[in-house]
């Protein structure tokens, strides 16, 4: 039992870190540009497809990831310059409509290029087996994901906490007018943030590709979880996004694994196996509703 919990906790950590890669970009765009970007999940989908296509063509998983990151950073930059920057000053309803339209366009473009069937993305050969840690076997590939996730989280922390660009970003999240008054070239900063967010999405899409299916619509499921994360953490806060991601990732994974078992001790096994997964999904949203109810600005409010 304890081994199951440990294994699921590692899975939760792995999922949470990938959620963080999505949530980090989303929370900055939301917090600094006051922009609801529903198409953020499409960047994740794009990253997965780029990685799968490049990996198939080159035969190398690493090339796939690099291609995904470079490709999506470029796509993100172009998207920001061509479309999204025109909506920063518009109301949330217009942003919802515009970025919902982008989801439709992105899904259709992917279908046109790669067809309606899911694509295969295999993990690198060397990491396909399990490794032994703490006395049990755990898939090496998942360990890689955890490692990359932690490295990116550390990189983001250093970027935001220790660099001049990071200072602008923090100032922008706390008070947008202030940044403009400080003479920061806000338009360039916004474009850079967006490109960074897209690159992070691409990493997540490429890394999760071998575990989940690379298919049209994969962005919509995870997008809402990323929104839940940033609302729990506090919109605009990177630290909040990390804490929220881990809460949601571990909570969701452990809930899915353990709730059916726990329920079985109080209800019939049929009820338990039906209700368990649903309760685990609901748990995350209930957590967010509870946070909003008691701490309406999230756990780590970025605005003072």
């Amino acid at each position: 039992m304890s081994q199951l919990i440990l294994e699921q906790a590692l899975n939760g950590l792995q999922f949470g870190l990938m959620l963080f890669l999505l949530a980090a970009g989303l929370t900055l765009v939301f917090g600094i540009m006051d922009m609801i970007n529903l198409s953020h999940g499409s960047l994740y989908m794009g990253g997965a497809y780029f990685a799968a296509a490049a990996a198939q063509a080159s035969g190398s998983f690493a090339v796939g990831i690099l291609a995904a990151v470079a490709g999506m950073a470029l796509v993100g930059t172009l998207l920001e310059l061509a479309v999204l920057r025109h909506f920063y000053k518009r109301d949330h309803l217009s942003q919802v409509l515009a970025t919902f339209a982008l989801i439709l366009i992105a899904n259709e473009l992917v279908r046109m290029v790669w067809g309606p069937q899911p694509m295969m993305l295999n993990p690198p050969e060397a990491l396909s087996g399990p490794v032994e840690i703490l006395g049990f076997f755990y898939p090496a590939y998942r360990l890689l994901i955890i490692g990359v996730g932690l490295a990116v989280a550390l990189f983001l922390y250093l970027l935001v906490a220790k660099t001049r660009v990071g200072m602008w970003v923090r100032a922008g999240a706390a008070n947008r007018e202030m940044t403009e008054a400080m003479g920061v070239n806000v338009r360039r900063l916004f474009t850079a943030i967006f490109a960074l967010g897209a690159a992070l999405c691409a990493i997540a899409g490429a890394l999760l590709g071998p575990l989940l299916a690379v298919q049209v619509g994969m962005g919509e499921n995870i997008l809402i979880l990323a929104f839940v994360v940033i609302v729990i953490g506090g919109i605009g806060s990177i630290r909040g996004a990390l804490v929220g991601s881990l809460l949601v990732g571990v909570g969701d994974t452990l809930g899915r694994a353990l709730l059916p078992t726990l329920l079985r001790s109080v209800a019939s096994s049929e009820v338990a196996s039906n209700l368990g997964p649903a309760l685990a999904s609901i748990l995350i949203y209930a957590l967010m509703a509870a946070v909003l109810f008691w701490k309406p600005q999230g756990l780590f409010p970025a605005r003072g």
Partner: peptide, 8 residues
Amino acid sequence: LGVGLFLL
């Protein structure tokens, strides 16, 4: 694709 472009 057309619907999305139209909405935009």
